[in-house]
Design a protein around this nucleic acid. Structure first.
Length: 587
DNA sequence: TTTAGGG
DNA sequence: CCCTAAA
């Protein structure tokens, strides 16, 4: 049996990818890394199918996608197994098959016949221009014969149907999926799933109607697509895309190229298999139905960023089948929206991830920013609910908060919904100094605090929305802090937070500790200058009651702050003209 | 992950 | 309020 090699795509391990005609399910848990091989199960599925892990989308450093260069057999039968070869070499565009036309600038053009190749009858030609397994370069042989470099010795390790079914549940298993459909009736979901196509692949695939957009098969599909966040970040999901993918990216890794979808819309795309994928549609590249007037920019990165991209491929090039951007909503919740607006797909919760990696909790800043974006996003959705959902593009910008190692990636998602609407997230209405008095009301109702509301202040610098929050400490909060100190002592900030600030999620243990340190200085200062306590509250805040500060001093003597010596006293000496060391032993 | 220290 | 180091 002749074995041909084709690029299957980039997968998270444990994932599933598909070419246009053959889906490839990674069935073992080996981490896909360059040079490694893994078993996949090939199926004929007239869809682009891949499975992905939501943690990829949700967390910064969870799963590194891998890239599969699969060796496809000449004639792939259903449930055939083959061994893909993992390669890491770049794929040169000039080695691509003549299917897409390549000009001297490296631009790839896909004409109308491009999608014809999706038909199963043409699979031999699809994968004819495969990749050499060892070199990673494309086999430029055009004789029509594939290489036999990879024997089918792995067939003795063929997984059977039931084993595969563990990874690929049927459509009936959609109970968990329902939670992830947003704002759309469930009846609108796409009923077709890969297993259905598997069973009738031969008959369906031979006809062109199942591969042409706008046909009856396509007409029933719900164009609106979105992905809802997971209830558990360790779950992974399956996304099925009909193979009527309208556009494809070339395979030149690391270089920019011009791509053109079948609708004739062009775009710039940059592919870097290791680091990122960037697609800059020039004019409606990602929206074949309605070209966009304004340019859209989409950055799709994996690695440290929550934006992910999944690939499928055919004919030795990459086809970006879906592009996802992440947006944390509340904590670990996540909301996704695909970049494609003209291809319907659905996301199903499949099951737990094969291998769990360490997850990093999104930073508070990230959560706040994303929730901000979400609120804006929903407003935008509402405003545009009557208009076509097509054409929505996500401009994704990510930035690193610092250039340090570890790169805490914070994500800025700017959405362009219609020309003229600002793509930038609108910060909360900036609060003036009046809010600083709002908290000093004396009643003990911190639950009435709305962290995103009137008491939330955000300092925004032009261009870069730094989320700085100035949550004014209310008197009741200070009292609760004092109570916490008296109960737990100094240093048990988490216990204090959980006990006394459980309703104030915006008060972290670090905030509490910082406040205590400030209270120490304040109480110390008050003791030093008893008669001019008002002067020091020049910042607009009202002074704390002397009794409270007195109690702070008492608690400071009982629970001395650790190492209250050098630096803190120096700053307090500078700022408040009072050495903090006086608080160590006020009595 | 929490705490301490410093800015 | 932020950041990092250290535990």
């Amino acid at each position: 049996m002749s074995v041909r090699k084709a690029l299957v795509g980039a997968l998270p391990f444990g994932g599933e990818a598909a070419t246009n005609a053959v889906s490839c399910t990674v069935v073992d848990g080996e981490q896909l890394s360059p040079g490694h091989t893994t078993r996949v199960v090939a199926r004929r599925i007239p869809k682009l199918t891949f499975r992905f892990h939501f943690a990829m989308l949700n967390h910064f450093d969870s799963v590194e996608p891998a890239y599969i260069i699969a060796d496809l057999m000449n004639e792939v039968k259903e449930d055939d197994c083959y061994i893909p070869t993992m390669v890491a070499e770049e794929i040169a565009a000039e080695h691509l098959l003549p299917g897409p036309k390549i000009d001297n600038a490296g631009a790839l053009y896909f004409d109308e016949n491009f999608d014809k190749g999706l038909e199963i009858d043409d699979i031999s030609s699809i994968f004819h221009y495969g990749l050499k397994s060892n070199s990673g370069g494309l086999d430029s042989n055009t004789s029509g014969e594939g290489k036999d470099e990879l024997k089918c010795g792995g067939f003795d390790a063929i997984l059977h149907e039931d084993e595969v079914a563990d990874l690929r549940p049927t459509i009936g298993l959609t109970t968990a999926c329902e939670d992830y459909y947003l704002d759309v009736d469930f009846s609108q979901k796409v009923p077709e799933l890969d297993y259905h196509f598997c069973e009738e692949s031969d008959s369906r695939n031979s006809g062109s109607e199942s591969h042409s957009p706008g046909t009856s098969n396509e007409a029933v599909r719900e164009p609106e697509s979105y992905i809802r966040g997971p209830d558990s970040p360790n779950d992974y999901y399956e996304m099925t895309i009909p193979c009527e993918s309208h556009w494809s990216l070339g395979s030149t890794c690391g270089s920019e190229m011009l791509v053109k979808d079948k609708m004739g819309q062009k775009g710039l795309a940059t592919c870097d298999l290791k680091d990122n994928v960037e697609a800059k549609p020039v004019a409606g590249l990602l929206s074949s139905g309605k070209p966009h007037k304004s340019e859209k920019k989409i950055n799709l990165c994996h690695g440290l960023n929550p934006e992910r991209v999944a690939w499928t491929s055919a004919r030795g090039k990459f086809d970006i089948s879906a592009s996802l951007v992440g947006e944390t909503v509340d904590g670990d919740d996540l909301s996704m929206q695909k970049v494609f607006t003209d291809i319907s797909y659905e996301v199903r919760k499949v099951g737990p991830l094969l291998r769990q990696k360490r997850l990093r909790k999104p930073t508070r800043r990230y959560i706040e920013e994303s929730s901000q974006l979400k609120s804006q996003y929903h407003r935008v959705r509402k405003d545009n609910s009557t208009s076509s959902s097509k054409g929505k593009l996500l401009g994704v910008r990510h930035r690193n908060k610092h250039q340090h190692k570890g790169a805490k990636a914070a994500l800025l998602i700017s959405r362009e919904v219609s020309p003229g609407r600002s793509p930038r997230p609108v910060p909360f209405q900036e609060q003036d100094s009046s809010m600083k008095f709002a908290g000093i009301v004396g009643h003990d109702s911190d639950e009435e605090y709305n962290p995103v509301g009137c008491n939330y202040s955000m300092r925004t610098k032009r261009g870069s929305d730094r989320r700085k929050q100035n949550m004014v400490w209310t008197l009741s909060e200070v009292m609760k802090l004092v109570d916490g100190i008296s109960q737990f002592g100094v240093g048990k900030w988490t216990a204090i937070r959980k006990t006394f600030f459980s309703s104030s999620s915006y008060r972290t243990s670090l905030d509490i500790r910082d406040k205590w340190r400030n209270l120490l200085r304040a109480s110390c200062m008050q003791l030093k200058s008893k008669d001019e306590d008002e002067r020091t509250w020049r910042n607009g805040s009202q002074p704390l009651p002397k009794a409270l500060l007195q109690r702070v001093s008492e608690l400071a003597s009982i629970h001395p702050y650790p190492r209250c010596g050098s630096k803190l006293s120096r700053t307090s000496r500078r700022d408040l003209s009072v050495p903090l060391s006086c608080c160590d032993n006020p009595f």
